[in-house]
Design a protein around this nucleic acid. Sequence first.
DNA 1: ACAAATATCTATCGTTTGATAGATATTCGA
DNA 2: TCGAATATCTATCAAACGATAGATATTTGT
Lengths: 243, 243
Amino acid sequence: MPKARANAEDGRRRRPADGGYARGDETRARIISAALDVFGTHGFGGASTRMLAESAGVTLPALHYYFDSKEGVYLACAEHIAEQLDGRFRGLTHDVANALAGAPPPRARLLDMLLTLVDGFADFFLGGHELEKWVMFIIREQAQPTKAFDIIFERVMQRTFNTLATLVGRLLERPASDMEVRIRTFTLIGQLVFFRTAREAAVRLTGWRDFDGERLKLVKRVLRTQIAAAFAPEQKLSRRRKS
Amino acid sequence: MPKARANAEDGRRRRPADGGYARGDETRARIISAALDVFGTHGFGGASTRMLAESAGVTLPALHYYFDSKEGVYLACAEHIAEQLDGRFRGLTHDVANALAGAPPPRARLLDMLLTLVDGFADFFLGGHELEKWVMFIIREQAQPTKAFDIIFERVMQRTFNTLATLVGRLLERPASDMEVRIRTFTLIGQLVFFRTAREAAVRLTGWRDFDGERLKLVKRVLRTQIAAAFAPEQKLSRRRKS
DNA sequence: ACAAATATCTATCGTTTGATAGATATTCGA
DNA sequence: TCGAATATCTATCAAACGATAGATATTTGT
């Protein structure tokens, strides 16, 4: 009479933590993928376990077999998002982080790096379709943060923001901890992310349902123009000319 | 044997559409106020009718007496938000709309109007506390818009955005329908609203739990600087200097 | 003051929810 | 190829859900 390794302390049978079959991994991944979509669209409370199961093409108990509870599925989604974003953002910021660690780059090079970075973020945020539901997943967490937010914040947001803030800080000749630097960094991201957080408003106000090549180019050009202007060294505030 | 006017066609007793007692109005208002908070925090699916009732200090059937259903409460919240935002935004944009309808103002005056407008929006978005839950209510609608979004969009967003876009258009010497104008207007709003849509992220990245006097001033100064720079007439793109 | 109109209450309905038990099917190393 | 390990299924539970019926309390014009 074999003692199932999969038995938890309380005796409930769950997927073993160490490995398992390849088929199980596939099912697990399918559940997360479907759950990201359902949670993103309906929120935690609005999504039922039966919705999640049907959307993933599995039966109800499969969710508990792999994730123990509805909340477990939710947190696994957060882990997935954190993992994916971490990978992509590291790819984008890698060169910048290296350049900032070495000898101080000239100002023009700093601005160039910032513009390139924003360009990359624009491609990622506006170009891809998979991201849509991730953004809503994260945005919903802002009203009442759970463990899911901690996961994503600590693994992705903090480091990515600090890299950006350091770059902005160099352009303003201030430390990344400076409050003006951090506020400016924040508004910079806001310009971009708003197209996703206020998706439906954006769709109705522009008439664009998605960002194809030319449209994405226009958005990027606008961002480039505005950021270049905001960080132009000659820039002086309140220089006004009557009439 | 009096025939209750409050009887609906199906015989269910509901609050009469035409008037009622003052006490009822008060209760109705209290329910909406509480519901805005609960829906904003937990979303439509995450909020239960019992949560709504307890939070408003009424019993469960009161919700159906006043609003017929959970969805009815939700839509009444949307009406309330639309009404409030409409009032405030009209106040802010009134002078601008008038000035744009008359003789073309000089460029410096246009920029001044834009900066004043953004200043007003900043006060409203970051200053007041009541707005927090409204923003989340609206943001949640972006994932899967319901009638609630139609109400708020048609009554507030469309007109407010068009006023802003017209102003931005004048500064760029283009019509409000121009796509670059609309994109720039959108990023402009995004800078500001992001502090609310990504509230928890903002809190953790700045350490600020709210925006008191000095903090609000800093945000406003940053916005003013960036917007003034973005619309400076001498602004030229991609003027780069090697090293 | 009293009756019609309005408002609020207690108690309960049928359904959906998250979760579990226990049987059955599949996988894969020995 | 056999059998332990892993995966999936059907059937069901108790609790919470949105909603309603019907009794009771409050308000207001006369």
